[in-house]
C-alpha cells in the first residue's frame, strides 16, 4: 500500500515539473520526424515491400523503436537524476526515513512512479506505428513485442539511474554518471564479435560476455518479435540488482 502511495506521489511530482512535459514534447517531436522519414522513404520506395520476408511493421518499428531506445537512453537519466539526490539535498528524504515505511517500499514506490511515466512516454510513441493499422496490415504481435522490449529497457535504464541518484547529492552528477554508465552498457555490445587467438590456433570468443552484458543485444530480439525468456530475465535481473543496491545504499547511509 505504501508503495502505491509513494508511486502515486512520485508520478504527481514528475508531472508537476516542467521538465517532464518538455521531455515528452521533445521525444514526441524527434520520434515524429523519424516516423515521417520512414513513411516517406517507404512511399518513395514501395519496392522494398515486394520482398515477402519484409513487412511494414519491421521497417517502421525497427527504425522508430531502434532510434527510440537511444533517445530514451539519453532522457531517462534526466528523469531519475532527482529521485534521491534532490531529496537528500533538500532534506525531504527525512520524511520517508522517519515515517513508518520500509526502504524497500520507498525504493519500489519510486521505481513504480517512474515506470508510470515511462509507460505514458511509450504509449505516446506507440501511437505512431499503431496509426498505420487502418491503412496497412500490421504484425501486431511483433509490435507488442517491440513495445515490451522498449519498456523493459527503459525500466532497466530507470533502475540504474535511481541507484546512481542515490549515490550523490547533486542531480547533475547523477545525470551525467547515469548517462555514461548507460552508454557504456550500450557500447559493450559492439565487442560481442570480438575474438582473440588462443592456444592451438583456436579462436577464443572473448567478446561473448560483452554481448550478454549489453542492453541493446537483448533488445534486438524483442524488435524481431522474438520473445526469449533469457532476455526477459536479463532485464528483470538488471532491474532487481540495481533496486537492491539502492536499498542497500540508503540503509548504509543510516549507519
Amino acid at each position: 500500500m505504501n508503495t502505491l502511495f509513494i508511486a502515486q506521489h512520485e508520478l504527481r511530482r514528475i508531472f508537476v515539473s516542467p521538465l517532464a512535459w518538455a521531455i515528452l514534447a521533445v521525444i514526441q517531436l524527434m520520434l515524429g520526424v523519424v516516423f515521417l522519414l520512414t513513411i516517406v522513404d517507404l512511399m518513395s520506395n514501395p519496392g522494398i515491400l515486394m520482398d515477402e520476408t519484409v513487412g511494414v511493421t519491421e521497417i517502421v518499428t525497427g527504425s522508430l523503436f531502434g532510434f527510440g531506445s537511444l533517445l530514451f537512453l539519453l532522457v531517462v537519466p534526466l528523469l531519475t537524476m532527482r529521485m534521491f539526490s534532490e531529496e537528500r539535498k533538500s532534506g525531504s528524504l527525512d520524511l520517508y526515513l522517519s515515517a513508518p515505511i520500509s526502504l524497500t517500499e520507498l525504493v519500489f514506490g519510486k521505481f513504480l512512479g517512474l515506470l508510470g511515466f515511462l509507460v505514458v512516454m511509450l504509449a505516446l510513441a506507440s501511437i505512431m506505428p499503431w496509426s498505420l493499422l487502418p491503412a496497412s496490415p500490421l504484425d501486431t504481435g511483433r509490435l507488442f513485442s517491440g513495445m515490451l522490449g522498449l519498456l523493459l529497457m527503459m525500466a532497466a535504464f530507470g533502475a540504474a539511474g535511481i541507484f546512481i541518484s542515490s549515490l550523490t547529492e547533486q542531480p547533475v552528477i547523477a545525470a551525467v554518471v547515469s548517462l555514461v554508465v548507460l552508454l557504456l552498457l550500450w557500447l559493450v555490445g559492439f565487442f560481442k564479435d570480438w575474438t582473440m587467438p588462443w592456444f592451438g590456433g583456436q579462436e577464443l570468443a572473448a567478446g561473448k560476455p560483452f554481448g550478454y552484458l549489453s542492453m541493446t543485444n537483448h533488445f534486438d530480439s524483442f524488435l524481431l518479435g522474438l520473445f526469449d525468456t533469457a532476455d526477459l530475465i536479463y532485464y528483470l535481473l538488471f532491474i532487481a540488482v540495481f533496486l537492491a543496491l539502492t536499498i542497500q545504499r540508503l540503509d548504509m547511509e543510516r549507519h
Binding site: N2, F5, I6, H9, R12, R13, V16, S17, S90, G91, S92, L93, D94, L95, Y96, S98, A99, P100, I101
Partner: peptide, 25 residues
C-alpha cells in the same frame, strides 16, 4: 519529526503534500 529543514516539496500544494504525509504515516 520535523528535521532542521522542513521536508517539503516545493512544487506541490499544501493540501497535496499534507495528504501524502497522512498516507505514508
Amino acid at each position: 519529526y520535523l528535521p532542521e529543514r522542513p521536508p517539503v516539496y516545493h512544487e506541490l500544494s499544501v493540501d497535496e503534500y499534507l495528504t501524502f504525509c497522512a498516507k505514508v504515516h
